[in-house]
């Protein structure tokens, strides 16, 4: 196994592009090192991106935020401006693993690991986050939901590295929230999760909304019908019930050691409702 620690993204994408065999990007390492030590992967090349200055920072850009690929999740929680603008994304990032894990893990790693149960992904998708991708042929930007194509699979081409996540400037009266269900209180993986982001118009009426569900399909599910169920409402009980029903209808879960199909579908609706209520309140709704 070869280990490289380049100091520029150009060098990093060059190494990944030329790599023979299995090449992995290392940021926090909380997924890669565990899989490596467990004997599940045997990389030929590991490219550590933590020495590339540009990806180790959170920068403000046009009222929004650009979070570098090597920024540990704990730093998201320490950034007051980010927390104020996108509390749902930050709370999702600060649910991953434990305090110790959050000191190392990154939201880009969480995304590129491509687990259907990744905590930060539904929150990012709900918030309309974009992934900035660097590659041997230049840079491109895609919606976060377009990065993952299935469990453990991404749409990244050979040599490409996600270098940052961009969050837009939140529109006025916008709130986001993320909730997950785990049987414990921490150190666990989402059995079901829901991210909701909504923007209010006049009189507390929901003007726009996005609902994303985790761990109920091979990738994060963007539940457009669930979002549509609350647009134009003041999130009254009837709207919440429609939201829950639409969220449940969007689920395509499996039975496994973490939960049953029935449980996941039922609780997806519960979490979508609860997350929507929190987002509504954060948006200034009453």
């Amino acid at each position: 196994m070869r280990y490289a620690a380049p100091t520029s993204m150009k060098e990093a994408t060059g190494l990944m592009a030329k790599a023979k065999g299995k090449a992995f990007v290392l940021a926090g390492g909380t997924d890669l090192l565990v899989r490596l030590k467990g004997g599940f992967v045997e990389p030929d090349l590991v490219v550590d991106i933590k020495r590339i200055p540009a990806v180790t920072k959170i920068t403000k850009a046009g009222g929004g935020f650009r979070i570098g690929a090597a920024v540990p999740c704990a730093e998201l929680g320490e950034n007051a401006a980010l927390k104020k603008a996108w509390p749902g994304v930050v709370e999702a990032a600060n649910l991953i693993g434990s305090d110790q894990i959050q000191g190392r893990c990154t939201i880009v790693g969480n995304l590129c690991n491509a687990s259907p149960a990744a905590d930060s992904v539904p929150a990012m998708v709900a918030a309309g986050a974009k992934a900035a991708i660097a590659g041997p042929r230049g840079r491109r930007t895609v919606a976060v939901e377009d990065v993952v194509s299935g469990p453990g699979k991404t749409t990244l081409k050979k040599g490409e590295i996600v270098e940052a996540i961009s969050l837009p400037k939140p529109k006025p009266k916008t709130g986001d929230a993320y909730l997950r269900f785990i049987p414990r209180t921490e150190m666990d993986i989402a059995v079901v999760s829901a991210g909701v982001c909504l923007t209010l118009g006049a009189k507390g009426v929901v003007k726009s909304a996005r609902v994303a569900l985790g761990a109920v399909g091979p990738t994060v599910i963007v539940a457009n019908a669930a979002a549509a169920a609350i647009i134009g409402t003041t999130l009254d009980e009837a709207a919440l019930e429609k939201l829950a029903a639409a969220a449940r209808a969007a689920c395509k879960p499996i039975d496994d050691k973490r939960g049953t199909v029935e449980f996941r579908i039922e609780v997806a609706g519960v979490l979508a409702k609860r997350a929507a209520k929190i987002a509504y309140q954060r948006a200034g709704g009453k």
């Binding site: 414990r184 666990d188 993986i189 496994d256 050691k257 973490r258």
Partner: peptide, 16 residues
């Protein structure tokens, strides 16, 4: 056995 690890064999953690 499908859950041969402490992630999915859930002993309580301190905060539980």
């Amino acid at each position: 056995m499908e859950n041969a690890g402490f992630l999915d064999y859930r002993v309580p953690v301190a905060s539980d």
